[in-house]
Simulated scan of single mutants.
Amino acid sequence: MSGAPLVLVALAVCLSVSSVAANGFSTQYQGHTQHPTIPEHCLYQELDIAVPLHGFALPSGRDGYCIRLECTDDYLLLIRHCERQPFPGHGCHLSANDYDLQYPACCPKLECSSGF
């Protein structure tokens, strides 16, 4: 009897972890991002972008970056990424990111041939 509850707990943990891994994360957080020279702005160091406090930025034209940057209270930077897409079924595929467009238009889209 002592082994059964342990097995159930282990199963629940495995299901929780696989659920998180399958869904992925579309938002990251970075704290302490106050811009060193521009008052009331966050700094996204990776691209050297100043984001106004309580505002947002939508960078485009940067290969590999399809994001929305938001500077919130206490200079917490929210970095939103494209939502993880399901594996395309028969007759469908995911388009490539279009980094020339702003988020979320730069995210991949599910494209299916006619009849699917």
Rank of each mutant, 00 (worst) to 15 (best):
P59S: 04
P88H: 07
D63K: 12
L78V: 01
C106T: 02
R68I: 01
Q102I: 12
S95T: 13
S95A: 07
V13R: 12
L94I: 06
P5N: 11
E46G: 09
I79N: 00
C66M: 11
L76E: 03
A4M: 09
D100K: 10
H35I: 06
L94D: 05
C112N: 12
Q34R: 14
I67P: 03
T72K: 15
G64C: 10
I49N: 05
C106R: 07
A57P: 05
P59G: 06
H35S: 13
Y65R: 08
H81I: 01
P88R: 06
E70P: 01
A22T: 14
T72I: 10
T37M: 12
D73E: 15
V13M: 14
S60I: 03
G64I: 10
P52T: 04
F25P: 02
C14E: 02
Q85G: 04
P52G: 08
Q85T: 08
A10D: 04
I49C: 06
T33D: 02
G24R: 10
V13L: 15
L101D: 03
G115I: 04
D48A: 14
S26E: 05
A50K: 09
V9Q: 06
L101G: 07
I67V: 15
A57R: 14
D73M: 09
R84D: 06
C42T: 00
L11Y: 14
V9C: 14
F87C: 04
T33G: 03
R62M: 07
C92W: 08
Y99C: 08
H41S: 03
M1H: 13
V9M: 13
P59I: 00
Y65W: 14
A105C: 05
R84N: 11
T37F: 12
P5G: 10
R80V: 00
Q30F: 01
A57C: 07
P39S: 11
F116D: 12
C82N: 04
G55A: 05
A105L: 12
S2V: 08
F87K: 11
L47W: 07
N23R: 15
H90P: 06
G64N: 10
P86T: 02
S16Q: 15
I38F: 11
F87Y: 09
M1I: 07
L8R: 12
G64D: 13
G91N: 11
V7A: 14
C14K: 11
L6P: 04
H54P: 02
C92S: 09
A22S: 15
Y75P: 00
E46P: 10
I67Q: 09
P88D: 05
Y99V: 03
H90N: 12
P36F: 11
G31K: 13
P36T: 09
L101Q: 14
S2C: 08
H81F: 11
H54C: 06
V51D: 00
C106N: 03
V20L: 15
R84T: 12
T27K: 08
I79A: 01
Q34K: 13
I38P: 02
T33V: 05
S60A: 12
D98Q: 09
S95P: 10
